[in-house]
Design a protein around this nucleic acid. Structure first.
Lengths: 210, 210, 210, 210
DNA sequence: TCGTAAACGAGACGGTACGTCGCGTCTTTAT
DNA sequence: ATAAAGACGCGACGTACCGTCTCGTTTACGA
């Protein structure tokens, strides 16, 4: 009992799992093949062998479908990799600079991976224009990652590698902001060297003054 | 030298200046009124009192129209303000930190100005998704501004306020990257305090080691 | 037997009868109001309160729409008039000349009726230029009428009022050809007297030689 | 003096003959190649190497261009054939039936000639729909031919081969109406046998009663 | 012989309609 | 009740031509 009755939304208990999967697959495939702009809901439905209404019943927009498909993709990848639970965590070897370089280099690789590039650029673009979707994008995809940085930097602050008065939210953006800038705006190539330089410059700015 | 001969495009010498202006105005107005997504080429044409073909003849896409309209807006503003020439320059009072705070605070204000927000977010989003347009966006709008930072930082490096080995392209992204990040992804409010903090943290990272 | 299977055209079982009717009405009204040339598919759709695609889904051209609308008009008129079935038949009073004069005079009246004139001229013109449409026009509108003449002339031949060796297809065109000629090419006024003269001259040519 | 001054139309004395010819040629060629419906004024102008305005200056419509082009074609053909003047005349060997069969068989051949078919069908269709153009079509192309029939039939009436009271305008339509009918409406093949039958049936109807 | 006014080629322009695509809704039929 | 299928009203797309309107450039005439 005790469902949110009265809202008269569709009954998610009776939802077809096979359709959901087919829609995720079709959406990601199409975005990869023809790009986000030329991906259509009709196209996704046709490719998934699904009625249009089945998409409209469960998602409010094309962007929302893709966002969920993308999240699902990440989940599956994590489940496959992590075996189970802990999924992602920034390593803590005690050497903050080395740890951040490792992570940011991995981030650079992911950003340059053509498989992820098309859908994530599309989602970012859509999120920039559409505040609603952008909030969901940020909440579900971005913030979990950013919190990992905050945690690692917090640990470093405890350990004395970062000044006490540093605002961690600003600090982490000092690290990821430059990378995002280069990726989104394609100003210059996004390389490991760039990631290293960002870490070095930024960390020195955050370190305790002698 | 040679004109782009043989491409046999339309004859820009015979182009109607009045139509161009009307299209810029209509485009900006509509984006302001109904947003970029609901702005259509048909709508721009109608509002401008212009045939659709006159738009398609001179621009390849809605985004391109808006980009030019936006550039033109900037030009006109600059011409009105600067009286003539020098236009934009980052001040150099000798105090790098103060100068950068001034500029980044102004940038924050501009990013928060609802008049500029709609079209520039739309352009950024479009440029992220469409590499072609993105390149033009970067080249015409972004790079000129970024070069000003590079120049100011170069002067600071000469003056000994920045380490010799610092890569200026990385340094400037350490400053603007975090701002762009917050603006584009709406993670947290974009305030003067944030700009100040970014400048402080970053500059300390760039300063000569004692 | 077999339906046209595999062609995967639209499913006519799900066709909206109300749209069909509205389109017929709009088409006929518009042709009456502004003429065939200035009647557009867009106009028909707007007037009928229907999407353009609903027209393009079911008809290949403006002419085809009007032809069906016209046929439907005839059907409805026939159904209203005839009460049911027998509809049109050339009378057979035994006096061939009188019977033909009656029918041809009625035809003249119809041709001169401004209500029918606009659409039927338009259809004739379209059919002359477009062989495909012309065939349909002929098959659905013209031939049924012409067969009535053939039947009546056949009866007359049995009765000895027409020579045995006369080719009925030629004979009937001797009657209707001149009327059509005058109507289509507007050489001279199309009157009852003209119809009578045609019948007299032609019948004398077909009658048994003394 | 005494020009039609004040009408301020273009000065036909300064008209470019080479353009006129090029336009005729282009028009006829295009109608032959793509049909009348897909022939456009822009297309004619481009093909003729002529500005659009040069067409609009001298003709009111596409149909008018084609009509003149067609008349000119006839004129040139006649001039080439007739050597000079008399051009067309229905022969008068004293045998009306034979003479008419000769002429109508030639007419049948012309109607079946694919070179003439496209433009003349187009003109006929246009003339049927557009009364203005139709009148010009009839006056310039049709009536001259029909008058030849009237003359020949008049001679026959003088010679006693046609009844005195016969109306020649009706009589000639008894001959050409059936042919036009078959040609325009494509009811049945248009053959020499058909022409012969029409002549026989019709003439018997016109002949003096024994 | 030369100026000058026209006709001319070229094609940009404001429009209208085209035929197509995709949207989001709705209806029908079959699980 | 959900789902596949797809017709529907609608709005915008990008294109094709329309007929009008400049633009220089011939070109033929009349001074």
């Amino acid at each position: 009992m005790a469902e949110t009755r009265g809202t008269s939304g569709p009954d998610s208990a009776r939802r077809s799992e096979r359709s959901r999967r087919a829609i995720y697959d079709a959406a990601l495939t199409l975005v990869g093949e023809v790009g986000y702009g030329r991906t259509t809901i009709e196209g996704i439905a046709a490719r998934a062998g699904v009625g249009k209404q089945t998409i409209y019943r469960w998602w409010p927009s094309k962007g929302a479908v893709l966002l969920e498909a993308f999240l699902d993709l990440g989940d599956r990848a994590a489940r496959a990799a992590g075996g189970g639970e802990a999924a992602y965590e920034i390593p803590d070897t005690g050497d903050l600079e080395a740890d951040l370089k490792t992570v940011l280099r991995a981030t650079v690789d992911e950003m340059n991976d053509p498989v992820y590039e098309a859908p994530s650029r599309a989602l970012a673009a859509e999120g920039i224009a559409d505040a609603e979707l952008g909030a969901e994008f940020t909440r579900k995809l971005l913030e979990p990652s950013l919190r990992l940085y905050a945690r690692r930097l917090g640990a470093a602050r405890e350990a004395g590698a970062v000044r006490r008065e540093i605002d961690l939210d600003v600090a982490l953006e000092l690290l990821v902001g430059p990378l995002a800038h280069r990726w989104l705006l394609r100003t210059l190539p996004l390389t490991h060297e760039y990631a290293d330089a960002v870490v070095e410059y930024a960390l020195y700015g955050l370190a305790p003054r002698p």
